[in-house]
Design a protein around this nucleic acid. Structure first.
Length: 804
RNA sequence: GGGCGUGUGGCGGAACUGGUAUACGCGUACGUCUCAGAAGCGUAUCCCGCAAGGGUUGGGAGUUCGAGCCUCCCCACGCCCACCA
């Protein structure tokens, strides 16, 4: 009966049996409380999984298995985020259809995931590239278009010359394309933009409701970047024109010594006739246009700019005439693209003023040296009637004095939503010569991605779809006249912004999601994924959800109530795992050698879940040995069927402590310490000559979420006929955790000198008497005066003695 | 420059609300089993010291009977955002 622990044989066996039994299917008709546990779904790349990918999935698997055993109706689904550039580039390179590549990669990923024994409800699998899925991605876009949230724009956008597509701000890293590392250019082109900024305020405020890591919430706050300030008009001398600046420091208005426009500011074009050094100004504008983001920052923040000769602006506070500059340290797409410069109280203005020898006028008292700007608070001076007023108070007063407007600005930009690539959802719009932009009628959705000869980008700023005349040319749904389809596709983020809703109702062809089902399952209770999504996926999804709430499609305002970050698994050399470094560890190899249960246990045991830890080939044997010992423990199981046997008091206490610790730790996603406690308990069991059935079964149940296969095998081995994963989760008994005898540390003058075991309920006096009677303690207290005694019940006694 | 976070043995890490620092695991050493090896099992393993004892949580100060944990200063590292007026 007691063969060796053969993970290969038992893991395959149980995976097949669970799948056949449909054990992990979520029920839509249930009186049980629900738990919706979700992983950020993967992008199925051609490389397959490395051991870092499943870490988060293991965590949600453990969490959902415990919740199921605790009696919840659990939804734990999985799907594929399969549109986007990598699949397309792979297709171009290997000359196969992206659809074929995606299907192949999905099959591979699914197989790898299945080998690890996850409890996914595969009946709800979704794929963002499936027309029945992207029908609804397009539907949401249409709704946004209807509500005026999608608009066409010709502003210069980030253009990746290598990927040949426009990119959103969020897709940049250090001014480079996040995907290929190419320097991004500014390129004016027609594009679709989503008015995400309209939701900035709500996204900011509702962060307080969420049980999310503070670091992610802070990232989002900074990314949305709300700031309050004033818009103030400066007249342009003689022209009758006005420039409006945005400032958070209207209190320093009297200290303004010049104004600055961003190079792309339209006002410059309007002033062309008055600018006497126009060629110089235009030269500078050209120069900054081709300058990439990275160059703008790599110059070590050395300020550049050029004065607009012949132009002066009037400070509305004191009527002074100030020079006007064009400089690229002012951003065209923030605020009004124009600033008033107060070198005395702003570091950037100070640096610019120094370089161009512009006057520096102090108006706020405080600060030390003259070598830097003073940005702190203080009372005003040099400020006319506002002298002596504290600058904080003066902010509003000066704004009113010059007829300024108090406004709120956001750092968040509207979302550039079009990509000039093939492998994405077609934007469901038609351009009609007479009606303008017309939405594709809902009944005609999905607009299916057509077959093309070449997936490669055209380079003209149009997607390859533009070459397919029979697809592009359609009749206008409104007037029946000649129309052309929109050929831009959506960014990869579109599908992932709402996929969690599709899992609730994956086969619905009539609606995005059934409202009753949505009401039951939403919101996602536990969402696990990488912290790198803080300012992209997690912003977009929150925005989508709020929009869907506004149009009545969903019942809740926020999609994910609780969020947990997964820490990366680094390679053994401390670097990121990458094919490039040749340091990738494949989970298939680990499963083959040690088994899925060991892989799962090891990844949870490595370190704190949210922290990144390096893989250790040596370290993995620890969990493996642990499982082998668990396997052998069954030989110690009492052969008697009598459960009321005298339980070892100490073992029983440890058992209930273990139940509590493992339960609490899984709830808190503190898996490393849960595993550690399971090991401690197994060590205790090993010391016993015989193990009671109740202790053994409880232990198996606690271990089951971590190591589902071996526990299932042992569970059946000892005579159970139903699955351990359907068993009820153990509940601890507080009475049993309380130990009757406790170990007290005895300190003399704050240093531990002795320990003793005493009955739990002894009072301070009794403990002190016992302690003083001990020879070691006596040695340290002899002849000394006891000044004070500190007693921490059940833990510690500190005898504070005098010097003499 | 800003935000968030981290610093504990040879290594990954544990420590509840300020109460016996180094749990659990890896590694290492010795022993046991074996014809031999592997695996397993047992013992030991923060540092100094024969011991008594002393020291130790990046460095320095402070609060406290008592600090890895609280306060202040400094150092190092990691991640995210960075000319956002």
């Amino acid at each position: 009966m007691d063969g060796k622990y053969d993970h290969k044989q038992i893991e395959k066996k149980w995976q097949a049996l669970w799948e056949t039994a449909g054990m992990y299917r979520a029920s839509d008709k249930s009186n049980k409380p629900k738990k919706y546990v979700l992983d950020m779904f993967p992008y199925p790349s051609g490389e397959g999984l490395h051991v870092g990918h499943p870490k988060g999935y293991i965590a949600t698997d453990i969490y959902s298995r415990m919740k199921r055993m605790q009696g919840f109706n659990v939804l734990h689904p999985m799907g594929w985020d399969a549109f986007g550039l990598p699949a397309e580039q792979y297709a171009i390179k290997n000359k196969i259809h992206p659809r074929v590549a995606v299907d192949k990669n999905v099959a591979r990923y699914k197989e790898q995931l299945s080998d690890i024994g996850f409890d996914y409800d595969w009946s709800r699998e979704v794929n963002t590239t499936d027309p029945t899925f992207y029908k609804w991605t397009q539907w949401i876009f249409l709704k946004m278009f209807e509500k005026g949230l999608a608009y066409e724009s010709y502003e210069p956008i980030n253009w990746c010359p290598s990927c040949q597509t426009g990119l959103a701000n969020e897709d940049l890293e250090d001014g480079k394309c996040e995907r290929c590392g190419t320097l991004v250019e500014k390129k004016p082109m027609r594009q679709w933009v989503i008015r995400i900024t309209k939701y900035a305020d709500r996204m900011l405020n509702d962060l307080d409701k969420l049980d999310w890591p503070t670091s992610i919430k802070e990232s989002q706050r900074n990314w949305i970047g709300r700031s309050e300030g004033a818009e103030i008009d400066f007249k342009i001398g003689g022209s009758g024109k006005v420039t409006t600046v945005f400032t958070t420091r209207p209190d320093t208005l009297f200290g303004a010594t010049y104004c600055v426009l961003a190079p792309e500011h339209k006002l410059i074009d309007e002033l062309k006739e008055s600018i006497t050094n126009l060629s110089e100004v235009e030269g500078y504008r050209e120069e900054t246009k081709i300058r990439t983001e990275i160059e703008r920052t790599a110059e070590g923040r050395e300020k550049t700019g050029v004065k607009c000769e012949g132009i002066s602006v009037v400070n509305p506070a004191n009527g002074e005439e100030l020079p006007l500059y064009v400089a690229d340290y002012v951003l065209g797409n923030y605020g009004t693209g124009a600033v008033m410069a107060v070198p005395a109280h702003d570091e950037r203005d100070f640096a610019f003023a120094k370089k161009f020898s512009l006057p520096i006028v102090k108006v706020v008292q405080g600060g030390g040296t003259d070598g830097e700007a003073y940005i702190g608070n203080g009372n005003l001076f040099n400020s006319g009637r506002f002298d002596g007023v504290s600058n904080e108070v003066a902010k509003r007063k000066i704004t009113d004095f010059v007829n300024g407007r108090w406004v709120t600005k956001y750092r968040l930009k509207d979302w550039v939503f079009s990509r000039q690539r093939y492998w994405g959802e077609p934007i469901p719009l038609i351009h009609c010569e007479t009606c303008g932009v017309v939405p594709v009628p809902e009944k005609d959705l999905p607009v299916v991605l057509p077959e093309v000869e070449s997936y490669a980008p055209t380079g003209t700023g149009e997607s390859p779809l533009a070459d397919i005349a029979e697809w592009v040319n359609v009749s206008c749904p409104k007037c029946g006249g000649a129309g052309k389809r929109e050929t831009n596709t959506m960014p990869q983020w579109a599908g992932s912004s709402w996929y969690y809703l599709r899992f609730i109702d994956p086969h619905n062809t009539e609606a995005l999601v059934d409202k009753e089902k949505e009401k039951y399952w939403s919101p996602v209770d536990m969402y696990v994924g990488g912290a790198e999504h803080a300012t992209r996926h997690l912003i977009y999804a929150r925005f989508y959800h709020k929009f869907l709430y506004d149009i009545g499609a969903v019942n809740y305002e926020e999609p994910f109530s609780r969020l947990q970050n997964v820490g990366l698994i680094m390679a053994e050399d401390g670097r990121k795992m990458s094919k490039r470094w040749g340091n990738v560890v494949n989970p298939d190899d680990i499963v083959a050698e040690y088994g899925a249960d060991t892989l799962r246990l090891y990844e949870m045991f490595m370190g704190p879940f949210g922290q990144s830890v390096a893989w250790s080939t040596q370290g993995i044997v620890g969990p493996y040995r642990f499982l082998e010992r668990v396997w052998r423990l069954k030989n110690k199981l009492q052969q008697t069927t009598d459960n009321r046997q005298q339980e070892d008091q100490k073992l029983n206490t440890e058992l209930h402590k273990t139940i509590k610790k493992v339960t609490d730790d899984i709830e808190a996603m503190s898996f490393n310490t849960a595993v550690s406690q399971l090991m401690i308990f197994a060590n205790e069991l090993e010391k016993e000559p015989q193990i009671s059935r109740i202790a053994y079964e409880t232990f198996l149940k606690l271990l089951a979420p971590f190591a589902p296969h071996i526990t299932e095998e042992l569970w059946h081995e000892i005579g159970n006929t139903s699955s351990v994963h359907g068993a009820s989760w153990p509940v601890f008994d507080l009475q049993k955790i309380v130990e009757k005898e406790v170990i007290i540390a005895i300190q003399v003058g704050g240093k531990v000198r002795d320990t003793m075991t005493v009955a739990r309920d002894l009072d301070e006096n009794a403990v002190l008497l016992l302690a003083l009677s001990r020879p070691i303690v006596a040695k340290w207290t002899e002849g000394k005066e006891v000044i004070k005694v500190i007693h921490v019940p059940h833990k510690l006694l500190n005898i504070v003695i005098g010097e003499g």
